[in-house]
Design a binder for these strands. Structure first.
Lengths: 402, 402
DNA sequence: CATGCTTAATAAAGCAGCCTAAGAAAGATC
DNA sequence: GATCTTTCTTAGGCTGCTTTATTAAGCATG
C-alpha cells in the first residue's frame, strides 16, 4: 500500500487526536490512526504524549477482533478545568467545565451595571478564585478563563468596542487586566463565537463540516465553524446575523435585528391592544420578551403571533446564512431561546426544508443548544480548552507559532 | 532574538513564496523572508527550488541599503501556461494565460447548444489544441485546463449537476473525459469561484483577507476567498448570493435572484409601456438585458430605473454578504456587468458606506473586474495555476497528501 | 586603498514530526 | 502448544524547518 504523507497544519495533530478521544472515546490507538490517517506508529507517540500530560487515560481492554484486544483510551475529565465568564447585562454568569466539557460549577452575580472596569476586574477575579476553591479545583489544573461579551470586540487587544450597557468599557484591555489579576491565561470573545465552540467541544458536532450557532440575546449573532475552526473574516466580525437585510423600507435596509430580536417583539407587543394581559413592565425589555414567550407557550394567540413572526423572520435570515455558508448544522443558543426555543427550531427547520438551495444534496441539522441560557459562558470556557489544548486557526495569515 | 517556529499548512510555503514574487516582484530573498516569517536560510532553499523549476528568474541587483545589494527575483511569465474554458449558454470562451496571469490568447466558439457531451468533449479538446498551437505554446509548459460552468456542480466527480441550458450534462464526468482526451490535468469549478481565483491570481487582492467576487451571468453567485483560499462550505456550494432572501411575499421568501438578475430586469421591462423603444427580441433574455443597460447608459429614464432597481437590490444582498463574511474586498464580474457595471459599483459602494456593520473599523474595497466578460474563463485558467503551483485548502479535513 | 562595518546569501548541523520497517506483546484458533 | 492475527512500540530515515557560522559584496573612513 502506498501511503501518502499526511499532515495537519503546524503540529495540530495532538489537538485533533484529543478531539477524537473526547468525542469518540473510549477508542483505541488503531481506530485513531484510521480516523486521522496517521500511522499507528505516529499515533503511538502522540498518545504517549497525551498520557504523559495526564490528559487521557487507558481505561481497559476492548473487544478482540481476532488478535490482541486494543487498549481503550479516554479523556481524564478531572485533569484540567477551564472557567467561562459571561458579562451579561443583568447578571454575570461563571461556569467551570472539566476536560469532557461537563459543567462542574456555576455561579451568578449581579451584572456589570455602572461599576468601573478596574473595580469590576477585581470582583471578577475574586469571584473566580472563590468559585474554584469552592469546587476544590487546584489552580494549576485550570487552563484559563474565557470572558464572553456581546457586540463588536477588539480581539487583538482583548477589549470591548461598543456594547449596549458596557459603554464605560470601550477599549479597556480587560483581557490583560484580568489575566494579571488572576495569573491565568484569559481570552476574550464574542458570545456567538463562544457558544459555537462550546457546541463543538461538547462533541455534538461530530462529522459536521460547516456549522453555525445562532445566538440571540439582546442582539442576534452567529458563530461559524468550519471543521471546528472559527470563521472570523477580515476583522473578526463575521457572522453578524442581525445585520442581514430582510426587507427594504423606502430605499433603506431593514435588518433582521430590527424585526426579529426580543426588543422588536416587545415593541410590537406594546402596540397591540391586548398587551396588558402579559404584565409587561417596560423596565427590562428582555424580561418582557420572556413574558410574551411564556404567554405564547400557554396558548395566548396574540403572543403566539408575535413569537411566530419573530421566528419567521429569523428563519428567513438563517436561510440566507445557510445558503451563503453552505451549512450542514445549526444550533440555537442564547437566553432568548429559553422559553420559545422549540418554536424557533420548528420555524427554521421548515424554512430550510422548503427553500434551502442544496436541499437535494444534503440537509441541515437544526437543534437547540443543550443549555441555551449558559451556552455563552460554557463556550467561553471551551474556548480556553481549545486554545490551550488544540489550537487552530484558519487561513495562511495565521502562521502557527509555538 | 527568539524565533518561533513558523510553518504553513503542509508544505505550502513554496506556493506562498511564489504568490509573493508574482504579486510583489521584483523582490529580494530577504524581503520574502521578512514577509513570510521564514528565515533567510529557508528562503534561500525555497527560492533555489523555484529557480530550478524555471518558475522565477534573477532579474538583477536591487539598491544597496548599506551592504551587499540584494538579487531581485521575478516571475518568468513564459515558463508556464494554463487554459480556461467557460461553458457559456450562447458561446464558449477559451483563454490562455501565462504565469503572470496575463492573457496570451482568447477564442470564442458557438455555445454548447444541444451537442451531446461526448461529442462536445472532442470539440473542446480540438479547440484547445488548436489554440495552443496557434500561440506556439508547447504542451509540456501547459499546466492544465480549468473548465468553468454555472450552477451547482459535483466537484468530487467533476460533473455538472443542474444548469439552465446544460441539462444533458447531468452527472457526466466531463472533467475526466476532457482530461483523457487532452492528456492534461483538468479542473471543473463554478464561474463565481473561478472569477474570484482569477482576481487573486492577478495580484489585485494583495493585502486582502476576506474577499468576494460577485458574479452575475444568468444567475448571481459569489466566490469567496479567505487569505486566498476558496471558502467552499459543506458541499462546495457556498456563496450562492442569488439565494439570499431579500423580502417576503405572503410567507414565502423572495430571493435576490428573483429581483436583481438580468431575467428579472427583462421581465419587469416587458411589463412597462415604453419597452418597445429598447428593441427587445424576447429570444434571448441576456441580450435583452444588454439592450436595457445600453438604453440606460444613453440616458433613457425608464431603463435607468430598471437597472437602478436591480442594482439597489444587489447592493442590499451584497451588504448582507459583507456583514456575514466580514469582507474587506469585493469585485464585480460576469457578463451582466458588461454595460452597466459602474452603476452597480456605485450602488454597492454607497450602500456599504452607509450601512456596513463594521464601517467604523474598516471599509470594503468595491471594484469592477478588469475584464468582466472573460473573468470566469481567466479564473478557470488561474484555478489550474493555483492548483498546480500553490495548492491550498481550508480547514483540517483537507489533509495534505503528496 | 586597506580596514572594518553592514547587508545578502549559503552552508552545516540539529530538531520535530512524520514516515517505513521490523519486532514484541497478547490474545484467538487450530 | 504452535501458529495466526491484531495491537503497540522501537529504530532509523526523510523533510522542512531552525540556529549558527561562513562567505560574498557592497559602503564608510582614516
Amino acid at each position: 500500500m502506498v501511503r501518502h504523507r499526511v499532515s495537519f497544519a503546524g503540529g495540530t495533530s495532538r489537538g485533533v487526536v484529543l478531539d477524537l478521544i473526547r468525542t469518540r472515546g473510549p477508542i483505541s490507538r488503531v481506530a485513531l490512526a484510521d480516523l486521522t490517517g496517521l500511522t499507528q506508529a505516529t499515533m503511538s507517540t502522540v498518545v504517549r504524549q497525551l498520557l504523559d500530560e495526564g490528559l487521557i487515560l487507558e481505561t481497559g481492554r476492548g473487544e478482540s477482533t481476532g488478535g490482541k484486544p486494543p487498549v481503550m483510551l479516554d479523556i481524564d475529565p478531572n485533569s484540567r478545568f477551564a472557567v467561562g465568564v459571561q458579562l451579561g447585562r443583568e447578571s454575570i454568569t461563571y461556569v467551570a467545565i472539566d476536560l469532557s466539557g461537563a459543567i462542574v460549577g456555576r455561579t451568578r452575580t449581579p451584572g456589570v451595571g455602572s461599576t468601573e472596569p478596574t473595580e469590576m476586574v477585581q470582583r471578577l477575579a475574586a469571584e473566580i478564585e472563590r468559585t474554584l476553591s469552592a469546587l476544590d479545583i487546584e489552580k494549576r489544573s485550570v487552563l484559563g478563563v474565557g470572558v464572553v461579551a456581546p457586540g463588536p470586540l477588539d480581539l487583538a487587544h482583548g477589549a470591548i468596542l461598543r456594547s449596549p450597557h458596557l459603554a464605560a468599557w470601550f477599549k479597556v484591555p480587560i483581557r490583560d487586566m484580568l489575566s494579571t489579576a488572576l495569573d491565568l491565561p484569559v481570552l476574550l470573545d464574542n458570545d456567538a463565537t463562544a457558544a459555537a465552540i462550546g457546541d463543538f467541544w461538547s462533541g455534538r458536532l461530530d462529522g459536521v463540516t460547516a456549522h453555525a450557532t445562532v445566538y440571540m440575546g439582546t442582539g442576534i449573532g452567529a458563530g461559524i465553524l468550519i471543521d471546528g475552526i472559527v470563521f472570523r473574516g477580515a476583522s473578526s466580525n463575521a457572522g453578524e446575523l442581525g445585520q442581514v437585510v430582510v426587507a427594504e423600507d423606502r430605499g433603506d435596509p431593514v435588518f433582521l435585528e430590527d424585526v426579529a430580536a426580543p426588543s422588536a417583539v416587545v415593541q410590537r407587543a406594546r402596540a397591540t391592544a391586548v398587551s396588558a394581559r402579559w404584565g409587561l413592565t417596560g423596565d427590562d425589555e428582555f424580561d418582557d420578551f420572556r413574558r410574551i414567550a411564556l404567554a405564547a407557550a400557554h396558548g395566548d394567540a396574540a403572543a403566539t403571533d408575535l413569537i411566530e413572526c419573530s421566528a419567521g423572520h429569523l428563519a428567513a435570515g438563517v436561510l440566507t446564512l445557510a445558503n451563503l455558508f453552505d451549512l450542514d448544522s445549526i444550533t440555537l443558543a442564547g437566553p432568548a431561546f429559553g422559553v420559545a426555543g422549540p418554536t424557533y427550531v420548528t420555524a427554521i427547520s421548515r424554512r430550510l426544508e422548503a427553500d434551502l438551495f442544496v436541499r437535494m444534496q444534503h440537509g441541515v441539522r437544526v437543534r437547540l443548544s443543550t443549555d441555551v441560557a449558559n451556552a455563552a459562558a460554557i463556550g467561553g470556557a471551551a474556548l480556553v480548552m481549545q486554545h490551550e489544548l488544540a489550537p487552530r486557526t484558519m487561513g495562511l495569515s495565521s502562521l502557527v507559532t509555538r
